[in-house]
Amino acid sequence: MKNILVVGAGGQIGSELVPHLQKIYGNSNVVAADINTKCADVFKDGPFELLDALDAQKFADIVKKYKIDTIYNMVALLSATGEKNPQLAWKINMGALMNSLEIAREFNCAVFTPSSIGAFGPNSPKDNTPQDTIMRPTTIYGICKVTGEMLGDYYFQKYGVDTRSVRFPGIISNVTLPGGGTTDYAVEIYYGAIQQKHYVCPLPEGTYLDMMYMPDALDACVQLMEADPSKLKHRNSFNVTAMSFEPSQIYAAIKKRIPDFTMEYDVDPVKKAIADSWPNYMDDSCAREEWGWNPKWNLETMTDDMLKVIGEKYKAGLLK
């Protein structure tokens, strides 16, 4: 049985990844770690450790204490947030990754670190973006992700560390709120539909972006880490996607279910510039061929589920 450490467990993906892993591997075999003290109240079903991922000694002590063999490094400042303080984004994103890799090398751990569509740049092909192509991102977030992919491959080739990664698209969740990403509108719009019957979209019509529903994202993490290593040709990092849409399409899907829902545009130039530098949709055939990636959710089924869950929270008075 694996002993797993999720660093950055309080983030958008980490907060749902921990219980997902606990269901598979057992509560006591999944350790949640985060710098936020409030997370101790969230992760009550299994071990929790307060950790600043930049503190290499404490990080290593936790790995040793729990005999960890797999590290999920989910620490990151996201794209739009990172542009506000690029120096801090580099310090956190790269510091947490280097500590994860070095500790994995010392204690013989496997490492999962998510990359992103943000790793691509304006010179990358926009449509059917290949697995292997030019990657010259124009955001500090993207620069961190490309560097992280290269470091992951380096630690695998030089030290034999079992590093694996996926390039996540925008992640849509009905559990955790957005955390400063360019694709956050695709989460916020559902809350706007339920709470105000109106949404102000920060991206212009026609801005296509790859997206994925959280259940598929969690499956991708586990499926890749469980994959036969002899079949992995790319490792860091696989394109994965489930759907691609632009604002008017997600609006139409919601309006079909909530007829009085309205939307207007108030374009955020920073988010627009970031989105314009990213792919419209990625080619994820390598992930499908090398480890059987096959998403289960699309825009229609996701919209049904999002509105159902968020609507129930709203009726129960659980939304602010």
Score class of each variant (00 low, 15 high):
67 K>I: 08
312 E>C: 05
299 L>G: 01
73 N>R: 01
78 L>I: 14
82 G>C: 13
14 G>T: 02
272 K>L: 12
207 T>S: 11
129 T>V: 10
320 K>N: 12
11 G>T: 05
227 A>H: 05
206 G>E: 02
105 R>K: 15
180 G>R: 04
152 G>W: 10
108 N>A: 15
168 F>Y: 14
49 E>T: 05
277 S>T: 05
233 K>W: 02
50 L>Y: 07
245 F>H: 11
95 G>A: 11
132 D>I: 13
156 F>V: 01
18 V>T: 09
112 F>N: 02
30 V>L: 11
83 E>C: 09
118 G>E: 13
224 L>Q: 06
16 E>P: 06
17 L>E: 07
244 S>V: 11
302 M>D: 06
219 D>S: 06
152 G>R: 05
122 P>I: 13
83 E>R: 07
287 A>S: 13
160 G>P: 09
156 F>Y: 14
11 G>A: 00
281 Y>A: 11
5 L>W: 04
40 A>P: 13
274 I>F: 12
22 Q>R: 15
306 M>A: 09
3 N>T: 03
154 Y>L: 06
177 L>A: 06
239 N>D: 04
252 A>K: 10
189 I>S: 02
219 D>H: 07
207 T>Y: 04
106 E>V: 02
61 D>T: 09
124 S>H: 14
74 M>F: 11
277 S>F: 10
186 A>D: 08
265 Y>R: 11
273 A>Q: 09
287 A>M: 02
244 S>N: 10
140 I>A: 12
163 T>C: 11
134 I>R: 09
139 T>Q: 02
102 E>F: 00
6 V>I: 12
39 C>H: 01
299 L>T: 01
31 V>G: 01
278 W>I: 02
192 G>Y: 05
163 T>R: 00
161 V>H: 07
96 A>M: 02
40 A>I: 07
107 F>Q: 08
264 E>Q: 14
275 A>V: 03
280 N>G: 04
289 E>Q: 05
39 C>K: 05
233 K>N: 10
7 V>Y: 00
188 E>Q: 05
6 V>D: 03
245 F>G: 02
122 P>Y: 09
181 G>L: 06
123 N>W: 05
153 D>C: 03
266 D>G: 12
2 K>M: 06
154 Y>M: 00
257 R>N: 08
192 G>P: 05
292 G>Q: 11
232 L>M: 13
188 E>D: 10
255 K>C: 06
284 D>I: 01
10 G>E: 12
115 S>H: 04
297 W>C: 07
131 Q>D: 08
151 L>P: 01
234 H>K: 04
16 E>S: 15
10 G>W: 08
101 L>E: 01
191 Y>N: 09
283 D>K: 08
279 P>V: 06
295 P>F: 07
129 T>N: 10
50 L>D: 01
237 S>N: 15
252 A>Y: 03
232 L>D: 15
258 I>K: 14
244 S>R: 02
275 A>N: 06
69 D>Q: 04
58 K>C: 01
123 N>E: 14
185 Y>E: 14
151 L>C: 00
88 L>W: 06
